[in-house]
Design a protein around this nucleic acid. Structure first.
Length: 219
DNA sequence: GCCAACGTTGGC
DNA sequence: GCCAACGTTGGC
């Protein structure tokens, strides 16, 4: 939310399922295999170290509150740092809980004229309680979450830089289709295989490939 | 603004 | 524990 010194996120929906900490590990295999994606398919969840996080850069009101939070809004905060609150999806939350201090994430602009990757940020505080779940006036208030057993977490992120050239979803999708057909780093990119996930992991190959596009001509 | 995809809820 | 109804995400 713009007026406050915080980031405001996408993803609504309040699930049940009390703070299971690792909903992912314990649940069905769909969740488990989904979480794997990268390294070998073993029982322990793989450690990702790069991320993509979605937020809406254009004004849109929900309950009279503007959800707009683009990369410029993050950049404008004190210390160019904000908390990524409002995530209300278990898989997205679980990914945030895996984030480590210092890891990098792409800031992705969603639900806007031209969706795509706008810049890069850094995780500067690992997962802690998302206070907005207890705030009745907040869009992301969750009546089912109790302070003695909070369901939702957030991390703090700090703006690093804009991407040298905006990388639109349409271009990333072309590479994705190309790589899916002939092989390549973006063939399994979560942005396309898990379209609605607002916080998602990237493996090193995906991250590096996307970064390399900065210096390429638009496809 | 439409609507497909998909996560969540709740009846049974 | 299944699954239909419902609500949300987010591209277009």
């Amino acid at each position: 939310m713009p007026p406050k010194t915080r980031a405001s996120k996408r993803t609504a929906n309040t699930g049940k399922d009390d703070d299971d900490g690792e909903a992912v590990g314990g649940k069905k295999k769909t969740a488990a295999s989904v979480e794997s994606g990268k390294t070998k398919e073993s029982s322990e969840s793989p450690q990702y170290c790069r991320w993509l996080m979605k937020s809406e850069p254009e004004s849109r009101c929900e309950n009279g509150i503007d959800l707009k939070f683009g990369i410029e809004d993050l950049k404008a905060l004190p210390d160019q740092t904000g908390c990524w609150d409002g995530v209300r999806n278990y898989q997205a939350r679980n990914f945030m809980r895996q984030m480590k201090d210092g890891q990098l994430a792409f800031f992705y602009h969603s639900n806007c004229k031209e969706p795509g990757i706008a810049g890069i940020m850094k995780i500067v505080k690992e997962a802690y309680v998302d206070h907005t779940q207890f705030d009745k006036k907040d869009v992301h208030f969750d009546a089912n979450s109790k302070p003695d057993n909070p369901k939702w977490s957030m991390v703090d992120v700090q703006y690093q830089r804009m991407i040298k050239r905006y990388l639109p979803l349409s271009e990333l999708k072309k590479y994705h289709l190309q790589h899916r057909a002939k092989g390549g780093p973006l063939k399994d990119m979560a942005l396309f295989t898990r379209a609605r996930l607002s916080v998602q992991p990237l493996n090193t190959e995906e991250f590096e490939f996307i970064l390399s596009l900065e210096d390429e001509e638009p496809l």
